[in-house]
């Protein structure tokens, strides 16, 4: 594990936390939370507009601009990125990367366009995965709409098209605090050679340890544990002994 990422899902300007990406418990102000996790030495921050796909646009550009004035770690902006112009705006606002799901499903060639202009490292392909028997199906619009695509095949295609990393969110586990879908993480990890970040399900420190023992993922995105003050960034890092020492510093 190389990166501990704070995930902030945002609706109408407020950080919210749902279950299975649905629902909307209000957590707090995005800028204040970003500053708080930055002060705790989080490795990265992911700001996701959770209703952008619904309304077809993102409201995060201004928020990214504000956050980047005081938060000096990498920031990824997700939700409602539709076009190369949206990527330009996100980067101009101070984002380092964009996380894209729906627009890539609708027009996969957008991945090549983003990668060729801004580089692969700028494109986080976001996959919302729902278990379907022995396999997983990719969803869009925050876990609401099935795409008919197999997650593993889709992950391979996204890599070929130039995605720099994959953010794999288990819709089944998201918000449940019952642990990661480790089989999903391992299957995606085995299918591609680009970095993979797991999201969805962490409710206690043991869940991170389990993920760390059974996979070699590059990153993990954490929401509930941080938002509900169940753990600090340092405590989360200490739960990942393959990467961090007991003081939370990278080995």
């Amino acid at each position: 594990m190389q990166r501990l990422i704070a995930r902030l899902d945002i609706k109408n300007g407020i950080v919210i936390k749902g279950i299975h990406l649905e629902g909307q418990r209000r957590i707090g102000d995005p800028i204040e939370l970003a500053q708080k996790y930055y002060a705790q030495a989080v490795d990265e921050i992911l700001l996701m507009d959770s209703v952008a796909s619904l309304y077809g646009r993102s409201n995060l550009f201004h928020m990214i601009s504000e956050a980047c004035k005081t938060v000096f770690v990498p920031i990824t902006m997700g939700g409602g990125i539709r076009s190369i112009e949206d990527v330009e705006r996100a980067l101009a606002a101070g984002a380092d990367k964009v996380a894209v799901n729906t627009a890539l499903v609708n027009a996969p060639s957008l991945a090549e366009r983003i990668a060729s202009v801004y580089g692969s490292q700028c494109l986080v392909a976001s996959i919302e995965a729902k278990r379907k028997g022995e396999v997983w199906e990719a969803y869009i619009s925050n876990g609401r709409e099935p795409t008919g695509r197999d997650v593993i095949e889709w992950a391979r295609e996204l890599e070929l098209r130039g995605a720099g990393e994959l953010l794999v969110t288990s819709v089944d586990q998201e918000g449940t605090q019952r642990g990661f879908d480790i089989e999903l993480c391992a299957a995606v990890e085995a299918a591609v050679r680009i970095p993979v970040v797991a999201s969805g399900g962490a409710g206690k420190l043991q869940h991170l340890q389990q993920l760390d023992e059974r996979t070699e993922l590059q990153g993990v995105a954490i929401a509930s544990l941080l938002h509900y003050d169940k753990a600090t960034v340092a405590e989360l890092k200490a739960a990942l002994p393959s990467t961090y020492d007991r003081q939370g510093a990278v080995k």
Binding site: D43, G164, R193, I194
Partner: peptide, 10 residues
């Protein structure tokens, strides 16, 4: 190792 190299290094 996987590329891109994304993360914190000494």
């Amino acid at each position: 190792a996987r590329l891109p190299h994304i993360g914190w290094s000494r």
